[in-house]
Write a protein that binds this DNA or RNA. Structure first.
Lengths: 196, 196
DNA sequence: CCTACCGATCGGTAGG
DNA sequence: CCTACCGATCGGTAGG
């Protein structure tokens, strides 16, 4: 949490990846050119290719890293022996904290994955599907155990994932809502609702 | 609801707009070329320009139509004399039904608006901001009236809008969840939560 | 890390 | 509605 990443501690490739995530988020994968990316680093476009193989490879690295984090967290989560509602809370909290710490990369993985090279697209979609299935299984367990209401488990899963994937508060620092308020209110909302 | 639109009843321009919405959604605004769009209509790219002015104009038309629908619905909503929770329910229901009936256009307006030409971008963002502010005002009223829990109104607004904007169930017809289940479960979830 | 440059494709126009 | 074509820009390579 809250690691301080100094510019100097990053390799050139890491700097390229960081700026790529930022630009792909701001302008879209197809809307951002390699020349823009090079400009953001103060070099010429052809120089990028001393560090990377292709534009698609950049997207692939960004999406892979995110997907592996979420897959790993899900794996840990299902092994824990805690009630389902606590598991769901932990999963939602992970989404929110990831968004706060690595917004660009997560946004790109959530919104630009369709531009992945075919083979990696297939892998990514499989991981995403597995993640969603694991999530839905948890919801079903909660319903069967009587902790959760009898709603459609797929619909519940996609409502929660849709909500956390689209969150963009943290950009608007101007509103100055404390991180803890965002985290706790979103979790409360998605688990217990907003009506008294 | 559920108007049947026959291909013959559409003008050429409407057909172009319909296919543009579909392609912009599937491949992104910048990722879809005018030649692809022309192909989808069985004509050559230059022929498109007998019916439209530019690629950006297509995006503008799609986003404008969606924005006006939501702005109009909000205006009607605030005038109604019903409790706040009913107003919120009606707003959420409108999002879901719009998504079911005009998925491509709504998806494009929600996800590709950043590629709008500068002037229209400004207008669009203002409408979006106004919509969000109206939504937040309703939530605040609900909290003050004691109907809603004391959560941060901005966070509640953005959680709900994030959830409804990202919904993509309807593509997966394979799951065969009835429309009414989706609608009712999402609304129940976002208002009353999933925990017993 | 650069300059020079490639073929492909882009949005769009001219002219019929 | 078409063919022919424009300048600009794309991702990427050659060579140093």
């Amino acid at each position: 949490m809250g690691k301080i990443i100094t510019d100097k501690s990053l390799s050139k490739k890491d700097k390229i990846l960081r700026n790529a995530a930022s630009l792909f988020r701001a302008r879209g994968f197809t809307g951002c050119s390699m020349r823009e990316l090079a400009d953001s680093l103060g070099i010429e476009a052809p120089s990028l290719y001393n560090h990377i193989g292709s534009k698609g490879e950049l997207l692939q690295h960004i999406c892979e890293k995110v997907a592996e984090s979420f897959t790993g967290n899900m794996k840990e989560n299902v092994q824990q022996e805690v009630p389902v509602d606590e598991k769901l809370e932990n999963l939602i909290r992970f989404h929110i904290r990831f968004m706060m710490e690595d917004f660009d990369a997560l946004w790109v993985a959530n919104h630009e994955w369709k531009h992945l090279p075919p083979l990696h697209l297939k892998t990514f979609l499989q991981q995403r599907k597995d993640y969603e299935n694991n999530f839905t299984t948890l919801v079903k367990q909660g319903i069967e155990a009587g902790q959760l209401k009898n709603l459609d488990a797929s619909v519940v899963t996609l409502t929660i994932l849709s909500a956390v994937r689209g969150l963009e508060f943290w950009q608007r620092k101007s509103k100055s809502i404390p991180d803890s308020t965002i985290e706790n209110d979103v979790i409360h909302h998605l688990l217990k609702g907003i009506m008294k």
